[in-house]
Each structure stands twice: as structure tokens, then as C-alpha cells.
Design a protein around this nucleic acid. Structure first.
Length: 675
RNA sequence: GCCGGCAUGGCGCAACUGGUAGCGCAUCCGACUUGUAAUCGGAAGGUUAGGGGUUCAAGUCCCCUUGCCGGCUCCA
């Protein structure tokens, strides 16, 4: 047993026995968490499993666990507290009403109702004020209130009053302001005067004082956000910030952001001359330049080869079709908003302007599935030919809302590496398993290694086709297959499309960001709508099950993801230019030309830099262009029948014999390894 | 779609409160011929995204359109 406080001799004691991290402790007087956790790194605690402020008075038999500022929960509390400081600063400077201010990944935000939008300069002012508040070391103080007191205290905060109204209706769990338990207000109190500087309706807990935020925070941006995330509600000003236990962690975070910016595929696409978005063409419609073009070709060719090996058949379909097809498929009912408007053709009018011939509407296709279905339906099918796997690099067009278009990751015109599989109920599980393994293997070949799976299931609601039993069976099958991979499986209840559950493959890139890649989607809907059939061994007609499967999602998006994953340092097999030869003087040019020719005949993408730049400049140019192999030869190399390698990271290897050099380059390309 | 910001030679940027558009890189020409990240000199290149307006005068102020950026909402 540990005695934490030392009572005066002879004083009468009121002893409180609590358990601290499983150890029994006796405390005297009116102890709080501060008595148990004096360490400055401990900013809050769990009391009987519930997070609480350190200032909370301890009760007999309380079980206490510390919350360290650097733990995930501690960081959330810190960030939430800094959100309060932000709000106080904003209200000190502007006439603003409070929205909500929760912690988010790596930071927090706070929403405000404010007449004039905030600017970058305002952000600096707010941050300056925040520093003053931090310095003043205000105490976060929790006050339990009843509803009428809360309403009185928040009488000038219309949005908070709205939250109190909502509390009486139904409350979302995880709401940081109020929950269905007791109502609390957090007051920021000046430690010298005891004056209440600011207060907010809030569930807490919070750090003990503003000083704890110290040097580890920064406001990052302002933007608009809808009140309660509903686009029918008013638009608020959202201030984003980040907060960390110390200045070093903040700097580290800021470096991480900079690193992500350096990797931004939009920037690298420009710098490396891979692709562009000519505004003349239209928003979200990329063109691939020769360097990006060859990369795409390599990516696609490799994918084709693998699909062929895995028993897929290649099909082709047009980019537009008559309206009727998308009526049958249901796309026009469900997704008309996301489709480009129709083009009306073939209508003819006489000289009076009267209709002579009925025209019709054609649509750009947003999906390939109806076309593949028509191929399936082109003749009757036997169970013997199932599973039937149709693959197409299918170009689709979706009318994405203007505000969501983003580089190559969200476009209006894209090419899906799309496959549709028609399977019997009996083959379903085996086939899903095959598809999932195929997908993971192929992604690994492109250099992504770290995956987890997400299982999107239906969650009540009416917007679903197919009977419950079919859903349950399909969901269970997907789950079994997903689990068999041994990868982490994250449930996504309610995430299913209306026509079927799905597994999606999420990949983590080189700097730990996750991207949704492939989806494997079950479809109960389309086989029904198109009345797909096959003849079984029993001679009867049966309905096949359809699987939709996009592997990269879209080539464009995958291209963008790979660009960011590799930061433009593509492995040789993908790099647009694999080798550049740099002669030290003009004299070595023919020597290197010959070497380059031998590589070229082995299929290597190689250039000889015969410009009259100095060789240092050439090395710089090709390093910046992120060419995997720079092959240098001077007089010494030529005499020795050798060349020198220089790599993107600046390392070099000199005097490599010509055949060895060529072999090494070809091997690196063929094995798809990174150099 | 919504809120805010931005748009200047191929690229990256400059031009104070309105006063006749500059720089670096890249490009082209010439000189130099060099062992691992920028040789020197010269030339050419812009109706300041497009359209309209205010003004003696607009890159700069106002309106519309297009595109981009940061978020929100959305993503079959």
C-alpha cells in the first residue's frame, strides 16, 4: 500500500481508498486525480472506466487509470481542449456564435456562425490570441448543470440551444457537446482572479489548464461547413487546427504534411510531364503525356497478362448507349444525377416544325456492367461455361459535382479495369476467394504491400433489393473469404450498395495513408433485371450471381496513388525512362550509343544525353526527372569496357563491365524491383 | 452543388494605395568540352483565363463565365 500524502501528526483523517492502475491506495482529505497523478504528462484519467478530469473528486473504491497526453485518448483530449481555446480566441476577436468543436485525426476543428468569412490573416490573429490564453494558464473547470441552467448560460448561443433541443429528441452517440447523461459546462477560469473567461457546453473531459497546450498547436486552415453536416442547413465557418504534446511532435507533423505535399500526384504529374488537365477539355478530364502514357501502357499490359493467366476473357464495349439500357439496369432511376445529361439524336421535323420522326436519347456510360450483361445474354449459357469472367478496360463518364473533382483521384472521365463474373451459387465462395487473392497478388506486384479489408453490409433500411436470406448468405460468404486471407477485416455496416454487399481492399502507401483500391461486389439486382439465365446440369434454367470487380478502381486513380506511393521514384519497370546514358565528354558518345542500342534491343527504355550541357548538369536533370539508372562513361570506363551507375539517391557504382551492367538493368526491370 | 480563396510567357514567381508588364528556369542561337546535382553570353516568348463594366487610365476596382485550390456535401 502506498501512502501518497503525509498528514500532519495527530490530525484526524478522512481516508479514501481507491485503486490506481490496479494497486490499492489510501488518500486523505478530499483527494482528486491530481493527488494520484502528479506527473504533468498525465492530463486526465479513467474513473471506473469513464474518462474524467484530473480535478474530479475521488470516491471510495474508485478504480483509476491515468490518461497520458501522448496516448490516442490523451491526444484527443488535448485537441478538444485546444479547440476550446480556439473558440475563446475567436469570440474574443469576432462576433461569432459557437457551433461544435471536436477532435479529429491529427487535430481538431471548431465551427462558428459568423457574418464575414474568416481569412488567413484572421487565422494569424486568432492564433496570436490563443497564445495569450495559453500563457494565462486558464483552468478548465467542469460544472454540472441542469437543463434550465444550461439554457440560461447558453442563451446567446443559438446553435448550442439547438443541440439542447436535439438532446431531447434523439442524440447521436459520440457527440462531444452533450450526451444523454448529465449536462456539463466547461468554464475557462483565470487562475489569479477566478474570473470566468469563457465557457462552452461540453461533455469533456479536458486538460487541467491551457498551459498544457504550450507550444504544440497551430491553426491550419479555414473553410466552410454545413451545420450538423447537412447541406440544407446554414453554412458555418470552420477553423481547423492541429495540436501535439510538444513542439517537436508538432514540427514532425508539419514535416509529414510537407512530405505529403511533395508527393502530391498533381504536382509530380506536372514536374515529371506525365499528365495534365487542359481546361479547354473540361473539368476532371485528364490527358496523359507520352511519359505518363508509356507508364499506363506498362501498367495495363501487365494487368492484361495477369488476367489472361487467371482465366479472364477480354471484351470491348462502346462509350455511349441508348437510354433504354440504363432504364433496364436501373441506373437512370438511381444515379441519373451522376450521369452526364443525354444527347438527343435522330429527331426529324417537317417544314411546319412538326415531329416527323421520334428521336431518342443516348447516354455516356457511367458503368460497364450492362454491356457485359448483354454479351452474356447474346446466347444461352450452360453451367459448363461458368464462371464466366469478362474483363475490359472500360472508359466511363460520371458527372461528378464540380466541387469534388480532385486530380486523378476524382475525375469525370476514367478507365476502369472492370470485370464481371457470372457464377453459380455453388461456385460463389470459391470464386470470390480466387478473385480476392488475384486482386491482392496483383496489387503487390505493383508495389503495394500493406492491406486491410472492409466488409460493407446492409444495415436495415429499405433501399435494398433481394431478399434477406440471400443477403445473409452472401454476407456470410464474403466474410468467410475475407477472414481466410488473414488480413485485418473492418466492418462497414450500412456501407453496402442497394444491390449487394461488398469487400473492399484498402492499401496503405509508403507514408501510411490509406486508399480504397479494389472492390468485390455482389449483385442480386442486375441478373434479376436482365433476367440472366443459365442451363444447369439438371436441364433447368437458373439465375447466375454476378460479381463486379474493379481492381485499381480506375487506372487514373491508381496511377495517382502509385505516383504518391513512390513519390515519383517509380521502380524501373514502371519508370517512363528507365536509363539515361551520360558521356563525360563527347568522345564517349558513340560508346554509350552502342551500349544504349544493346539495351534498347532488350526492350529497355533508354536515352543517351548528347546535349552540350556539362555532365554535372545532365546528372542533375536526370536525377530531378527521377530516372532510375543514370549510366555514366568517361575515358577510363570506355578503356575498361565498363560503365558507371548513378542512382536517384546519389549513390554510385563505378567500373561495371558492360554485359554485367546490361544484365543488371534488365533483371531489375523484369523482376519489377525497386532501385 | 455549397462556402471561401486563387488565375500574370511552357514552369515557378514579381509588379506599393489603379499610371505604358519584370525575374529565374525551360526554349532557340553562339562560345566552352569538363569524372558524378546548375558553364558563360545573346535572342525569342505575354491581348495578364475568357467576356462585360467603372475610369482620363485596369494585371490591379465591379459583374458574369470557365478552370484550379482548401473544406463541406457526395462518390453506383
Amino acid at each position: 500500500m502506498i501512502q501518497l500524502s503525509h498528514p500532519l501528526p495527530g490530525a484526524r483523517l478522512r481516508l479514501v481508498r481507491v485503486s490506481v492502475e490496479g494497486k490499492s491506495v489510501e488518500l486523505d482529505g478530499h483527494p482528486t486525480g491530481f493527488d494520484v497523478f502528479p506527473d504533468r504528462e498525465i492530463i486526465a484519467m479513467h474513473v471506473n472506466g469513464t474518462p474524467a478530469d484530473l480535478a474530479r473528486a475521488l470516491q471510495e473504491d474508485d478504480e483509476l487509470e491515468p490518461i497520458n497526453i501522448s496516448s490516442p485518448e490523451g491526444l484527443q483530449i488535448l485537441r478538444h481542449s485546444v479547440a476550446h481555446i480556439t473558440a475563446q480566441a475567436v469570440q474574443d476577436i469576432f462576433e461569432a456564435k459557437l457551433g461544435i468543436g471536436p477532435p479529429i485525426e491529427d487535430g481538431f476543428y471548431y465551427d462558428f456562425m459568423i457574418d464575414t468569412p474568416l481569412t488567413e490573416e484572421d487565422l494569424r490573429k486568432i492564433q496570436k490570441r490563443m497564445k495569450e490564453i495559453v500563457k494565462a494558464n486558464q483552468r478548465f473547470t467542469r460544472v454540472v448543470v441542469d437543463e434550465s441552467t444550461a439554457r440560461w448560460q447558453m442563451k446567446n448561443e443559438p446553435l448550442k440551444l439547438e443541440l439542447l433541443d436535439k438532446r431531447n429528441e434523439s442524440l447521436d452517440e459520440g457527440n462531444v457537446e452533450v450526451d444523454s447523461g448529465e449536462l456539463t459546462i466547461y468554464q475557462n477560469i483565470d487562475p489569479r482572479t477566478g474570473e470566468i473567461k469563457w465557457q462552452d457546453l461540453c461533455r469533456g473531459p479536458h486538460v487541467p489548464n491551457t498551459r498544457i497546450a504550450d507550444k504544440g498547436f497551430a491553426l491550419t486552415r479555414v473553410s466552410a461547413a454545413y451545420w450538423l453536416g447537412n447541406q440544407n442547413n446554414q453554412s458555418l465557418q470552420r477553423v481547423y487546427g492541429t495540436a501535439w504534446p510538444d513542439a517537436e511532435s508538432l514540427a514532425e507533423y508539419q514535416q509529414r504534411i510537407e512530405e505529403a505535399q511533395r508527393r502530391d500526384h498533381r504536382r509530380l504529374g506536372q514536374e515529371l510531364d506525365l499528365f495534365s488537365f487542359p481546361s479547354e477539355i473540361g473539368s476532371g478530364l485528364p490527358v496523359f503525356h507520352p511519359k505518363g502514357g508509356i507508364m499506363r501502357q506498362v501498367m495495363e499490359d501487365y494487368s492484361r497478362k495477369k488476367h489472361l493467366e487467371a482465366g479472364y476473357e477480354f471484351v470491348y464495349s462502346p462509350h455511349i448507349t441508348k437510354q433504354n439500357l440504363f432504364e433496364t439496369s436501373g441506373h437512370l432511376q438511381w444515379y441519373a444525377d451522376g450521369m452526364f445529361p443525354p444527347m438527343h439524336v435522330d429527331a426529324e421535323y417537317d417544314e411546319n416544325g412538326d415531329l416527323k420522326r421520334q428521336g431518342q436519347d443516348y447516354y455516356l456510360k457511367p458503368m460497364n456492367c450492362p454491356f457485359h450483361i448483354l454479351i452474356y445474354k447474346s446466347r444461352s449459357r450452360s453451367y459448363r461455361e461458368l464462371p464466366l469472367r469478362m474483363f475490359e478496360f472500360g472508359s466511363v463518364y460520371r458527372y461528378e459535382k464540380s466541387g469534388v473533382i480532385h486530380g486523378l483521384t476524382r475525375v469525370r472521365g476514367m478507365t476502369q479495369d472492370d470485370a464481371h463474373l457470372f457464377v453459380t451459387q455453388d461456385d460463389l465462395e470459391v470464386e470470390i476467394e480466387k478473385v480476392l487473392r488475384f486482386v491482392l497478388d496483383l496489387l503487390r506486384d505493383y508495389g503495394l504491400e500493406d492491406f486491410y479489408l472492409e466488409l460493407s453490409t446492409k444495415d436495415g433500411g429499405e433501399k435494398f433489393v433481394g431478399d434477406d436470406q440471400a443477403w445473409e448468405l452472401a454476407t456470410a460468404t464474403l466474410k468467410r473469404v475475407a477472414e481466410s486471407t488473414g488480413l485485418e477485416l473492418v466492418p462497414d455496416p450500412g456501407g453496402a450498395a442497394f444491390y449487394g454487399p461488398k469487400i473492399s481492399v484498402q492499401a496503405r502507401d509508403a507514408i501510411g495513408r490509406t486508399w480504397q483500391m479494389s472492390t468485390i461486389q455482389l449483385d442480386f439486382n442486375l441478373p434479376e433485371r436482365f433476367e440472366l439465365e443459365y442451363v444447369g446440369s439438371d436441364g433447368e434454367k437458373h439465375r447466375p450471381i454476378m460479381l463486379h470487380r474493379a481492381l485499381f478502381g480506375s487506372i487514373e486513380r491508381f496511377f495517382g496513388v502509385l505516383t504518391e506511393h513512390y513519390a515519383g521514384h517509380f521502380p524501373p519497370w514502371l519508370a517512363p525512362v528507365q536509363v539515361v546514358c551520360v558521356p563525360i565528354t563527347e568522345d564517349q558518345q558513340p560508346y554509350l550509343e552502342q551500349f544504349a542500342n544493346s539495351l534498347r534491343s532488350a526492350g529497355v527504355r533508354v536515352e543517351v544525353d548528347s546535349t552540350d550541357e556539362r555532365m554535372q548538369k545532365k546528372i542533375r536533370n536526370h536525377t530531378l526527372a527521377k530516372v532510375p539508372f543514370i549510366v555514366i562513361a568517361g575515358e577510363k570506363d570506355a578503356e575498361a569496357n565498363a560503365v558507371s551507375f548513378r542512382f536517384r539517391d546519389g549513390t554510385q557504382r563505378n567500373g561495371i563491365e558492360l554485359n554485367m551492367a546490361a544484365q543488371e538493368i534488365v533483371d531489375a526491370i523484369e523482376s519489377r524491383k525497386q532501385v
